[in-house]
Each structure stands twice: as structure tokens, then as C-alpha cells.
């Protein structure tokens, strides 16, 4: 039996297979996810007030502001009707995750900035204006807790939104799974833990972050497994979609760079390191971060090509 379709349509970006989102969207989703994870981590540290070990986490808010801006710029580059981007802020459409995402991003900036101000890094203390702002923020009762909660809650919202954004697009079966938000949230958290691990100032902090990262990586592996099971036991379009990453064109990158190099190897290295079998090095965190980026590329590219 044959079923052959011949189509006269050759719209650029649409045919022969859908490819309208280039590198900009995966880079934005990756940076957005990592910033979300950084907000959760720095919010947690602020809540716990772990000042005792001169925590590098107090530099995270500043770094997240830079990373988020790079991500937003990347997103801006993707827009085809750039001069109309302000239209995002003339409405709030509940049915569109992209709409609530744009408002979340607007709220995220001041919350991260407040976190940076309340624990002003040493090199910024020379600036008298910032010092004054920091002093005022510190003088408000419970400002620590409010900012800590704000960072953790909005960080979680940002991380979730990056996944829901794709999973709500029902015509693309690979994205159309309700577990994608969890995968992106965990991947962002793992990438953030790895980043803080990279810039950590002492062993105690490294051990804490490596232990946290190991738990998140383990959870991420379980979520990926569940996502695959979910898709393989779903309709034909979902089975075809997941097969593009399991056995199809994106399989080598998925198994080698995401599963093996991005999750299993760093999990092994960090398990050995926290048990004092080997030294803490930059290898594992770099692999985790690179794996997170490749994951976004694979999901965005393979997802576009999947369809009904």
C-alpha cells in the first residue's frame, strides 16, 4: 500500500519540513532556563542567609541579569516584525504562554536586581548610590525574605514557562507533552547549579552544589525516561516524533551529547568527587551546561520538524 502526497507549496521556512526557528530560540530557552535556576538557587541562599562561607551565590544575580539580557536579545533577533515588539505589552492573553512569558520577564528583572542590591558584591560597594540603595533595601523589615521568595517563585515561573511555551503548540507532537515544563525546569536548575559550581569560591560550596546537581540530574533522567514512555505509548504522530530523537536524525546528538556527555558522565564524575574519590574540576559542570544547550537545540529543531 502506498500513500504519496505531492504538494505544489514551497513556502520558505515551511517546506519541505518546518524550520522557522533558528539558533535564537534554543539559545534563549537555554539562557532563560539557566537564569530561572539561578534565581531559585540565589533565592534559596538568600533565604537561608548562608553568609558564613563567603558564598559565590551573591554574584549570581548580576550574572543572571547579563545572561537574561543576552537571551532576550537573542529572542529579539528572532522576531520578524521587530519594530512591533512593544505590542506584547499592550495586552495580556491568558491563552498564550508567550504572552504571560513576556510579562514574567518584565517582572523578573527588578526582582533579580533587588537580589543583587541587597547583597551588593564587594566591587560595587565603591559606588555610593548603589551603596545607599542597598542600605535602604536592607533597612526594610523582612526585605530578605520577600526578595528570596520573589526570586524563587518567579524563577520557577520562568523555568516552567520556557517549557509550557513549546508544549502548548499542539500541532508539534514532540513538544506536545505536559512533562516538558518539568524537563526544562530541571535542566535549567541543573545548568544553574553547574554554573555556580564553576565559580564557587571554596570546596564546601562546590560539594553542596555538586550534591544538589546530582539530585537534579537524576530527576532529569527520570523525567526524560517518562517523557519517552509517554510518547511511545501515545498516538502515531507522537511515536514518529519521539523516534526522530531516539533512532532518527537527531538520535546521535541526543544519545551522545545530552544523555551520555550531558547527564551520565557528569553524574558519575560528581558522585566520585563528592565522595572524595577524585578532585572537583570544571569538567562536569561544563558538560552539564553544554548538555543543557544541546537539549534545547534538539527539542526545538526536532519539534519543528514533527507534525500531523
Amino acid at each position: 500500500m502506498m500513500n504519496e502526497l505531492t504538494n505544489t507549496r514551497h513556502n520558505p521556512g515551511i517546506d519541505p519540513s518546518l524550520h522557522f526557528w533558528g539558533w535564537e530560540i534554543p539559545v534563549y530557552l537555554f539562557l532563560g532556563g539557566m537564569v530561572a535556576g539561578m534565581m531559585i538557587i540565589s533565592g534559596y541562599f538568600l533565604y537561608e542567609k548562608k553568609e558564613e562561607f563567603n558564598c559565590s551565590c551573591y554574584q549570581i544575580p548580576l550574572i543572571s541579569l547579563i545572561l537574561l539580557s543576552v537571551g532576550m536579545f537573542s529572542l529579539f533577533l528572532d522576531l520578524e516584525h521587530k519594530l512591533y515588539f512593544w505590542r506584547l505589552y499592550t495586552t495580556l492573553k491568558i491563552s498564550s504562554p508567550m504572552s504571560w512569558g513576556s510579562w514574567i520577564l518584565l517582572l523578573v528583572y527588578p526582582v533579580i536586581a533587588a537580589n543583587a542590591l541587597i547583597q551588593l558584591p564587594d566591587f560595587m560597594k565603591k559606588n555610593s548610590f548603589l551603596n545607599m540603595l542597598s542600605g535602604k533595601l536592607n533597612s526594610i523589615r523582612s526585605s530578605y525574605k520577600i526578595i528570596a521568595y520573589g526570586n524563587m517563585i518567579l524563577g520557577t515561573a520562568l523555568g516552567i514557562y520556557t517549557g509550557v511555551l513549546l508544549s502548548s503548540l499542539g500541532a508539534r507532537p514532540l513538544w506536545n507533552t505536559s512533562i516538558l515544563w518539568l524537563l526544562f525546569l530541571l535542566s535549567g536548575l541543573s545548568g544553574a547549579a553547574a554554573f555556580v559550581h564553576l565559580i564557587a569560591k571554596n570546596k564546601e560550596e562546590r560539594v553542596l552544589l555538586a550534591k544538589t546537581d546530582n539530585k537534579v540530574i537524576a530527576a532529569e533522567l527520570i523525567v526524560i525516561f517518562l517523557m519517552i514512555i509517554n510518547m511511545l505509548s501515545s498516538s502515531e504522530v507522537h511515536i514518529n516524533a519521539v523516534n526522530t530523537i531516539l533512532t532518527g536524525a537527531y538520535a546521535p546528538a541526543f544519545w551522545v551529547f545530552v544523555i551520555t556527555a550531558g547527564l551520565l558522565i557528569p553524574l558519575l564524575i560528581q558522585t566520585l568527587a563528592v565522595n572524595n574519590k577524585i578532585r572537583h574540576t570544571a569538567v562536569a559542570p561544563i558538560l552539564v551546561i553544554a548538555g543543557g544547550l544541546v537539549l534545547r537545540f534538539i527539542i526545538v529543531y526536532a519539534g519543528q520538524a514533527s507534525g500531523y
Binding site: L18, F20, L79, E80, Y84, S168, L169, G170, R172, Q304
Partner: peptide
């Protein structure tokens, strides 16, 4: 704004 979400959907 040319975000292309509609194309994806």
C-alpha cells in the same frame, strides 16, 4: 511581532 508561534501551532 513575527514570533512565529502561530506557524508552529
Amino acid at each position: 511581532i513575527g514570533c512565529k508561534a502561530c506557524i508552529a501551532s
